[in-house]
Amino acid sequence: MDKLKLRRDLLRARASLDPGQRRANASNIRETLLDQPWVQMAGLVACYWSTGSEPDTHGLVFALWKHGATVILPVHKDDDDLDWAVYDGPDSLKRGRSGIMEPIDTRRGVDAIRTAALVLVPALAVDRRTGVRLGRGGGSYDRALARVGPNVPTVALLHDGELIDDIPAEAHDQPVRYAVTPMGLTSLM
């Protein structure tokens, strides 16, 4: 199956989820992550501010921050690479160039993700055999994941049914080590 068709099918399935199911999914994902000791101990967490039909991260970002983690969120650069800035509560965000909320804090540079103890990334799907994630096609997160150390937990957040077999992989695709769905955590590598 080609990536474009797979993306369309997955986005269509996400769009069909009712708001109550999306809220329940976000809650289950948040609680699964917050129960992990390696999440609880992560001092610097790279995450993202969800949008549209993605599993909602707003409550997760807030909870991580309230529990004392420093949370950095991406700021999309003009070249589609990701800069990073610190989240400092709900009032520390503004709408960015692509309509996604971004921190107003000082930009830390594209290499700031190198210092994260935990990296949470969006995905439309993840291959359960290889950990390859299917993103939106811009390559922003593949570039960011290439900067992450080999022992840092990288986690894709998914709805049920998005942990699948046989995602077409290209040379630039970066795998993740874990996937979290509303059903729980799956180790991939």
Score class of each variant (00 low, 15 high):
3 K>G: 10
5 K>E: 15
6 L>W: 13
6 L>G: 01
15 A>D: 13
18 D>M: 10
20 G>S: 13
21 Q>I: 13
23 R>S: 14
25 N>Q: 12
26 A>M: 11
28 N>W: 10
30 R>Q: 15
36 Q>W: 09
39 V>H: 02
41 M>W: 11
44 L>A: 05
45 V>H: 00
46 A>I: 05
48 Y>K: 00
48 Y>D: 00
51 T>Q: 05
52 G>Y: 09
53 S>K: 11
55 P>D: 10
55 P>C: 14
57 T>R: 01
59 G>C: 10
59 G>L: 12
59 G>D: 15
61 V>K: 00
62 F>Q: 10
64 L>T: 03
65 W>R: 08
66 K>W: 04
66 K>D: 10
68 G>L: 07
69 A>F: 06
70 T>Q: 11
71 V>Q: 00
77 K>A: 12
77 K>N: 13
77 K>M: 13
79 D>T: 12
79 D>V: 09
80 D>V: 11
80 D>N: 15
81 D>G: 03
82 L>H: 02
86 V>H: 03
89 G>T: 02
90 P>V: 12
92 S>N: 05
96 G>W: 01
97 R>V: 13
98 S>V: 14
102 E>C: 03
104 I>L: 08
107 R>A: 03
108 R>K: 10
109 G>L: 08
111 D>R: 01
113 I>R: 02
113 I>A: 01
114 R>C: 06
116 A>Q: 00
116 A>S: 04
122 P>W: 05
125 A>Q: 05
125 A>G: 12
128 R>W: 11
129 R>D: 14
131 G>D: 05
133 R>A: 06
133 R>Y: 09
135 G>E: 12
136 R>G: 12
139 G>E: 07
143 R>V: 03
147 R>G: 04
152 V>G: 01
153 P>Y: 01
156 A>D: 04
159 H>D: 11
161 G>W: 12
162 E>D: 15
164 I>D: 04
164 I>W: 06
166 D>V: 06
166 D>C: 06
169 A>K: 07
170 E>K: 04
173 D>W: 01
174 Q>C: 10
174 Q>D: 08
174 Q>Y: 13
176 V>E: 02
177 R>E: 06
178 Y>W: 14
181 T>F: 00
182 P>G: 13
184 G>L: 02
184 G>D: 04
187 S>T: 10
188 L>A: 02
189 M>C: 14
